[in-house]
Design a protein around this nucleic acid. Structure first.
Lengths: 199, 199
DNA sequence: ACCTGAACACCGTTCAAGT
DNA sequence: ACCTGAACACCGTTCAAGT
């Protein structure tokens, strides 16, 4: 039959990028990972395009905003964290599960310099491509938090956004003053003990 | 006697700025206060010079770095905070004195958007003109902290830099997500309770 | 459909030339 | 002594022209 090719019913997960486009997208992402590692989330987009040997407009075509690029860069990390939250949500030790997840969140936000700031900014900026991912993290934290609260291990007057903010703030401290990196776990423990119900 | 003018022994607090220079310096500072209020600590220096009706080089002559300008802008605030710490250091309620000072510190760091970040960065950057002022704040916090620790109200494994970092981190949260401003006092209380000795 | 890079409007920083 | 603004080397963002 005319117009029917063998693989018409193939899984069209993404809207069929042309071969060269697909290659460029991957090159950009690979280079961006390196450059953001070096320069942080405020890295020069020009520099990324240059090093990827791609026109500046090409970078903008694939990633219309800096946040869009960051989102693609963090896609895997977010998915992994979401899966972790899911698994921990069925743990039998609600408080320990919460602490474990928040520890991972701190680690994740510490992946790139400036990332904690980028993530916090999404709370106010609903248009950011990172907004959805971060909202998911906040609600995952919220769920684990509720369980810990139900178990009487966390005060009732705290919500998911509070702990998300506090945890990001801890990552930010290390961002700004690398010399305080060694205090991070300690500060985390202090903040967590502040969330315990008044005895 | 030759070369002896009437006011030779006058108090030479600053090295005698020429009249026009002195005027420019004040104009720059006045304008900078407005612009930094608007745009935060990363405000455009060009914009400040422009609005102060001063050549760009003139701004650089008076304030060789952005931090130098910020330091001049915050001189009064720092002096006021230092005096407050001094007064509180003689208070009879060590814990309440510490809380009061940290509350002022949070308020101060919230004066301009980005200020918390600028202050935290001085920990690592010893060359910054803000370094001395912030170190003074940290040691003032350290002194009040020690008294509260001696009174058994704060755990022993916390130092002045820790509380300085935590307090700045709280200011930063509001910086990044203005919608969380209403939670600031609450989060401050939570963090403070985390600094209480384990019961 | 996609790529390219020039063009535009901004930066921070320096410094030769002026008064 | 001090002021000025052009010059330099960067940005982010857009878009007409190409394939």
């Amino acid at each position: 039959m005319p117009g029917e090719s063998p693989d018409t019913a193939a899984p069209k997960t993404s809207p069929e990028l042309r071969a060269d486009a697909r290659r460029n997208r991957e090159r950009i992402l690979a280079v961006a990972r390196v450059v953001v590692e070096e320069q942080g989330t405020e890295a020069s987009l020009r520099d990324i395009a240059r090093r990827a040997q791609v026109g500046l407009g090409t970078l903008y075509r694939h990633f219309p905003t800096r946040e869009a690029l960051l989102e693609a860069l963090l896609r895997q990390n977010f998915d992994r964290l979401a899966a972790r939250a899911q698994a921990l949500g069925e743990s039998e030790a609600p408080y320990e599960a919460l602490v474990a997840f928040l520890g991972d969140l701190i680690g994740g936000a510490g992946a790139y310099r400036g990332l904690a700031a980028s993530m916090m900014a999404t709370i106010s900026d609903e248009e950011s491509p990172l907004h959805a991912s971060c909202a998911a993290m906040r609600s995952a934290a919220g769920h684990l938090l509720e369980r810990a609260q139900a178990a009487g291990r966390i005060r009732a007057d705290v919500d998911g956004t509070d702990v998300f903010a506090l945890v990001n703030a801890l990552s930010w401290i290390t961002d700004q003053a690398p010399s305080l990196a060694s205090r991070r776990d300690h500060l985390f423990a202090l903040v967590m003990s502040g969330l315990a119900p008044p005895s």
